[in-house]
């Protein structure tokens, strides 16, 4: 469905995308995972025709789109990272207009717009101006606009970034339904758990390069069976790592912040001895909770970057509910 070979793009001498090669099968849910500035949006822009590659080739649905991105634009839908519909038009008019860009006739576009407004729970806001919508409503309508013409391939750039938990959850549910209806989905995100939950195959992209690409189940193999615990302290803890290693040779302890550590092991972790150890050494434990190692751990192991940032991201209130 999508075949990318040695795709490279530079901006003012800085490499944004560095010899990317990957294939996405028809009906697949493919995730592009990486920190901000990794090259995710640039890749989507090139694939959809908003940017030109410096070198490499792109084929979408057996059409060569390298120099002619228009060749496949009727097959693709795009949900950009920004809700970029027309603020002065109503939700309904925005959808009708987007449908008209794909040549849909009046009755078709009116019916489809009504159908999508109902699907996304925006019927009551249909005649309100898009500029007055909440952030969550804007994202929903932007996704609706991206699929108005029933595209075979949908590119979604950070669809849930900045949304509250409820809206993000609703949007993930809608994306999941789209995939089950047969749409090929290319999703970029920096929420690793989102990719883990939704995608079938994931590529880790760092500084414009794909460092790992595989199915989610294969990627998770190295951390399967691993146990982990997150321990939070009332106050910043002292440097106890050497003593910890001597006391618990089978456990690995890693600092996440002044007052938080992560303990990992391939064997079961018992809470009591750990809490006693820290309290005996002058660190009052506020909370100790078990966590399941995830794709995030694989990402950290594979890329070796953004350890704290990625983990803090998961602890944020807007992270995956």
């Amino acid at each position: 469905m999508i075949e990318v070979v040695n795709l490279t793009k530079k901006f003012d001498g800085v490499i944004a995308v560095d010899e990317l090669s990957f294939r996405i099968r028809q009906g697949e849910f493919f995730g592009f995972l990486g920190p901000n500035g990794a090259g995710k949006t640039t890749t989507i822009n090139i694939l959809t025709g908003l940017a030109r590659p410096d070198s490499g080739s792109i084929r979408i649905s057996d059409r060569d789109c390298t120099n002619n991105p228009k060749a496949a634009q009727h097959l693709i839908g795009v949900v950009p990272d920004d809700s970029n519909l027309y603020p002065e038009l109503s939700g309904y008019d925005n959808l009708c207009f987007c449908a008209s860009l794909y040549g849909m006739r009046k009755i078709q576009r009116q019916n489809r717009s009504k159908e999508l407004l109902a699907t996304f729970g925006l019927e009551e806001a249909a005649n309100r101006k898009f500029g007055g919508y909440s952030k969550g409503m804007k994202r929903k309508l932007t996704i609706a606009a991206g699929i108005i013409h029933n595209p075979r391939i949908l590119f979604m750039d950070e669809p849930t970034t900045g949304l509250d938990v409820g809206s993000a959850r609703q949007i993930r549910l809608l994306i999941s339904r789209l995939h089950h209806s047969g749409t090929t989905i290319f999703l970029t995100t920096h929420y690793i758990e989102e990719a883990e939950r939704l995608c079938q195959r994931v590529a880790f992209i760092v500084k414009g390069k794909i460092v790992k690409i595989d199915s989610v189940s294969n990627l998770l193999q190295p951390v399967l069976g691993k146990k982990a615990m997150l321990i939070t302290f009332c106050n910043p803890i002292m440097n106890l790592y050497e003593k910890f290693e001597r006391t618990f040779p089978n456990l690995k302890c890693e600092s996440l912040s002044d007052a938080q550590v992560r303990v990992e092991s391939m064997e079961p972790i018992y809470v009591g001895p750990l809490v006693r150890f820290f309290e005996d050494n002058g660190s009052e434990v506020m909370e100790a909770k078990r966590i399941t190692p995830s794709l995030e751990d694989v990402f950290v192991i594979t890329t070796g970057i953004e350890v704290n940032t990625m983990r803090k991201e998961r602890e944020k209130p807007h992270s995956i509910p």
Partner: peptide, 14 residues
Amino acid sequence: KNRSFERLLLAPIP
């Protein structure tokens, strides 16, 4: 500026 022009550039028209 508000990136709605990108919608037009993504449309399958010359």
